[in-house]
């Protein structure tokens, strides 16, 4: 056969290079403007003040800086991140494994899916008092809280993605003599990985909710302790600073995960073949 589309050059961008330059900087400028507006509004509301319990943005950042310098913040995070990291790790490994299993086998789908569907819809936080009675107020309870929050969405996303692998891709594997294991490893898992990663991101986000909830509800430790303690002594700037820092951490971490995913699955990120 002869050449198909002789004019097309791989990777050649459409249009002249540089025409798109101004766009990213506009987005960046607007992001900065938008942050300035929000933090400015916070500052003004704090100066009015709208409430005695509403410190200004600068006071809060000052408190954050102080806690970062004297080390309180780092000790707190060392404590907070423990149940979070352990819980998220367990949920990810177990959740993806169960999800694959449920997605691949009709029987396990029938057996396990209803449990996770109910868990996904249910306010699982209500289990916390029970967990505390059963496992005390230590690390175990907190890890479990993170797990019950994070796991259902990971399982359901994984199972759904596995089930939705395009039939023609699996058939292609069979036609080219792939073994069942090869089909799972080389077709189903790569095809499912974007949705699995999306589930992981949702799971981790729920895990953060669980970790903070555990620290506020079970026993005040780590960042939860800073929040609870500074509230009790009316040191509002420190309280707001701690809350600001945990939200910042969660958002940064999830963004980092998204970036990692983009690098890891280059082909996937660019979307499925579809016209």
């Amino acid at each position: 056969m002869t050449n198909a589309e002789p004019t097309a050059v791989p990777g050649a961008p459409f249009g002249a290079p540089g025409t798109k330059r101004p766009l990213p900087s506009r987005a960046l400028v607007l992001k900065i403007v938008s942050a300035l507006i929000l933090f400015g509004a916070w500052e003004i509301a704090g100066r009015v003040p709208v409430s005695l319990a509403f410190p200004t943005f600068l006071e809060s950042m000052g408190a954050l800086f102080r806690m970062a310098v004297d080390g309180t913040l780092w000790t707190a995070y060392a404590e907070t991140l423990q149940p979070l990291a352990v819980g998220v790790a367990i949920s990810a490994v177990l959740g993806i494994a169960i999800g694959l299993w449920v997605g691949l086998s009709d029987f396990f789908d029938w057996l396990f899916s209803p449990i996770f569907i109910v868990m996904q819809a249910a306010p699982l936080a209500a289990l916390i008092p029970l967990l505390v009675l059963a496992y005390g107020i230590g690390l175990t309870s907190k890890v479990l809280v993170v797990c019950i929050m994070a796991m259902p969405v990971i399982v359901l996303n994984t199972a759904g993605a596995v089930r939705n692998t395009p039939e023609s891709m699996k058939e292609m594997g069979k036609a080219f003599l792939a073994s069942d294991l090869s089909i799972i490893l080389k077709i189903i898992i790569p095809a499912a990985s974007p949705v699995i990663f999306a589930g992981l991101r949702l799971g981790i986000s729920a895990g953060f909710i669980g970790a903070i909830l555990a620290e506020l509800k079970i026993t005040p430790t780590g960042v939860g302790d800073i929040i609870t303690y500074s509230r009790s002594i009316a040191d509002y700037p420190s309280m707001y600073a701690a809350i600001f820092s945990i939200i910042l951490l969660a958002v940064l971490f999830l963004n980092l995960l998204e970036k990692t995913e983009a690098v890891l699955f280059k082909g996937n990120q660019r979307g499925y073949v579809s016209d």
Partner: peptide, 14 residues
């Protein structure tokens, strides 16, 4: 035997 698929059945990540 080898198969050529109507919807190509290419692996998008490869």
């Amino acid at each position: 035997r080898a198969f050529v698929f109507q919807d190509f059945a290419l692996l998008p990540w490869a």
